[in-house]
């Protein structure tokens, strides 16, 4: 070795030495970020600990378009497993494969159709799972991992797949684009982790500290427009769902549109909209009957109705649908467009 090279080598060794020492110091001494109280884990340690809490589920299915596998998340230390409610569970006993390859049989404790959740239980397996900590604040842009057995790729003691991404948005599932039917319409974490794949449903969404923050949702795709959506159910929803199942009370009223006995009707309001010529004929006001409720409220001919009680009006039909949910005696609010102006109008019977 030449002299300068030798020099560089020695310096490098020293440098590495310092670095290792500093790290030692930082791990066991004062952390870099004094304000942080959370314990940071390396990725592989984190993944190890999480993998012990995620299980592979096998059940009914296998026919075309229906997979016979999905993922599940262990909760607490009593052998409870949370997963998505699906046809996979249509068997008397669901096969559970734990992280260490053990094959166990789980019984379905109960299902919560409105939230599309199911609770399973395995007995005396000594498995411990996540705690449901509903106090964690999740915000868009936060980094997350998805841990699931998507495509059923892991078998036996193989680990589930880990995918990375961020929480894109926190929003009701209804606010997405497209027309997919989904029973659950409430709050979700929209994520850019590609979990919208067979078998991922029921897997864990975890934060960078390895804490459970959500349960991965089912595949959702708008069949006409072809838009996919990856999402997870937040823990408050999951917790409520689990509580309901454990109490045996799952017949919760779904938030579907309720029609009322004596609803508002266009004719009674004195409103005539332009005739329905297209599937989505905009809700333009054609005529107002003099002295009618509409007239008194200040609605004018040619107003375009955009919102009714903050519900989007896309067509004459959708306006009639919203009216059918409003009691004739109640007042409601419209947002109309008049020229380039947007005007809020209170309609009082």
């Amino acid at each position: 070795m030449t002299r300068p090279a030798n020099c560089v080598f020695v310096l490098l060794c020293l440098w590495v030495g310092i670095a290792l020492t500093i790290e030692n110091n930082l791990v066991f001494g004062a952390p870099i970020d004094q304000s942080s109280t959370t314990v940071l884990m390396s990725h592989d340690t984190l993944v190890d600990r999480v993998q012990e809490k995620v299980v592979k589920l096998f059940g009914a299915g296998g026919a075309k378009g229906l997979e016979s596998y999905q993922s599940g998340v262990l909760i607490g230390s009593d052998g409870y497993i949370l997963t998505s409610w699906s046809t996979v569970l249509d068997v008397t006993s669901v096969r559970v494969v734990a992280y260490d390859g053990r094959r166990l049989n789980a019984t379905v404790v109960g299902v919560d159709p409105p939230n599309e959740m199911a609770l399973l239980k395995v007995d005396d397996a000594g498995l411990s799972g996540f705690e449901l900590d509903t106090s964690l604040a999740i915000r868009p842009g936060q980094r997350v991992f998805g841990v699931s057995n998507l495509f059923g790729i892991a078998t036996g003691n193989e680990y589930c797949s880990v995918q990375k991404g961020v929480v894109m948005a926190v929003a009701p599932l209804t606010q997405r684009r497209g027309k997919t039917k989904s029973l659950y319409q409430g709050k979700v974490y929209v994520i850019d982790v590609m979990t919208n794949n067979p078998g991922a449903a029921g897997g864990a969404l975890i934060d960078m500290q390895g804490r459970l923050i959500g349960i991965l949702g089912k595949e959702i795709r708008d069949e006409q427009a072809g838009i996919w959506l990856n999402y997870a159910l937040p823990l408050d929803v999951v917790q409520a769902s689990m509580d309901r199942i454990l109490k045996g009370n799952t017949s919760v009223e779904s938030e579907s549109i309720k029609t009322v006995d004596k609803p508002h009707r266009l004719a009674d309001l004195g409103l005539t909209l332009i005739p329905d010529v297209l599937a989505k004929t905009p809700a333009f006001v054609d005529q107002i009957r003099k002295g009618s409720i509409a007239d008194h409220s200040g609605i004018q001919t040619n107003d375009l109705i955009l919102l009714a009680n903050d519900q989007r009006i896309d067509s004459r039909k959708s306006f009639e649908r919203v009216l059918s949910t409003l009691n004739r005696a109640d007042s409601f609010e419209l947002l109309v467009q008049r020229g380039q102006e947007l005007i809020r109008i209170q309609v009082r019977p």
């Binding site: 440098w15 590495v16 310092i18 670095a19 290792l20 500093i22 790290e23 030692n24 930082l26 791990v27 870099i32 970020d33 942080s36 940071l40 884990m41 390396s42 990725h43 592989d44 340690t45 980094r143 960078m208």
Partner: peptide, 29 residues
């Protein structure tokens, strides 16, 4: 210094102890 070294060590490879990965975590945060 720590970050430069971390990058250096990552290049060299082989050191995959928890101590080094703390750097990864900090970077992630």
């Amino acid at each position: 210094l720590f970050q430069v070294t971390f990058v250096l060590l990552s290049c060299v490879g082989g050191f995959r102890g928890e101590r080094l990965l703390l750097g990864q975590q900090t970077l992630d945060t």
